[in-house]
Amino acid sequence: MDKIDKNILKQLQINAKQNIKEIAAKVGLSVTPTYERMKKLEQANIIKSYVALLDRDVIGKKFVAYCQITLIRHHKELIDDFKTKTLQFSEIMECHHISGNFDFLLKIVVNDISQYQQFINEKLSLLDCVSTINSSFVMESVKETTVYEL
């Protein structure tokens, strides 16, 4: 990946809705080589997908919590079971298997505190493999980005 590829990726991260002609002008190439480079980046799975980023406040998803999860035991079957079950919950935006005092870190996004309580009581806490759930609530988001520095 050279400097031009990195610049193409930066442009796509800033605005994936730009057409190839716009991107080509910004990276200093003509349309055809820009298109070919983008296809190679897609084929190499550097570009995973093109998405629309929504404003969660506008769509009513104003409540963000981070949950630190401890499992009852560190067995491969329990870890795999937890990972599989978290994929079924649309409220979980991110799930990370982590090192340290907890086993997993979850980012939960819902409409409000009552919906969060319902999610914890009726879904997450019912998983047999979960020992403890510690929650932290986002008071203010200072920085949220999807752009990686290359």
Rank of each mutant, 00 (worst) to 15 (best):
M1I: 05
D2V: 03
D2H: 00
D2W: 08
K3E: 15
K3C: 02
I4E: 03
I4D: 10
D5G: 02
I14G: 07
N15R: 06
N15S: 09
A16I: 02
A16C: 09
Q18L: 13
N19D: 15
I20T: 14
E22Y: 01
I23D: 01
A24M: 13
A24F: 00
K26V: 04
K26D: 14
G28T: 09
G28C: 12
L29D: 02
S30H: 09
V31Q: 07
E36P: 03
R37C: 00
M38L: 14
M38P: 00
K39T: 05
E42S: 05
I46Y: 08
I46Q: 05
I47N: 08
V51M: 14
L53N: 06
L54H: 09
D57F: 12
D57R: 11
V58S: 10
G60S: 08
K61S: 08
K62M: 13
F63Q: 02
T70F: 00
R73P: 00
H74Y: 13
H75Q: 08
H75W: 03
L78C: 01
L78V: 00
K83T: 00
K85M: 02
L87N: 11
Q88T: 09
F89H: 05
F89C: 07
I92M: 06
I92K: 00
E94S: 03
C95W: 01
H96K: 10
H97R: 10
S99F: 11
G100L: 12
F102G: 11
D103L: 05
D103E: 11
F104A: 08
K107A: 03
K107C: 13
I108V: 15
V110S: 06
N111M: 04
D112T: 06
D112C: 00
D112P: 05
I113R: 04
I113N: 04
I113V: 03
Q115N: 15
Y116R: 01
Y116Q: 05
Y116K: 00
Q117P: 00
Q118N: 13
F119L: 10
N121L: 07
N121A: 14
E122M: 10
K123W: 08
K123P: 06
S125D: 15
L126M: 10
L126D: 12
L127T: 05
D128K: 05
D128V: 12
D128Y: 11
C129E: 15
S131K: 13
S131H: 13
T132A: 10
T132Y: 11
I133M: 11
S136D: 14
V138S: 12
E140K: 07
E140W: 06
S141I: 14
K143T: 02
T145C: 03
T146I: 12
T146F: 15
Y148P: 14
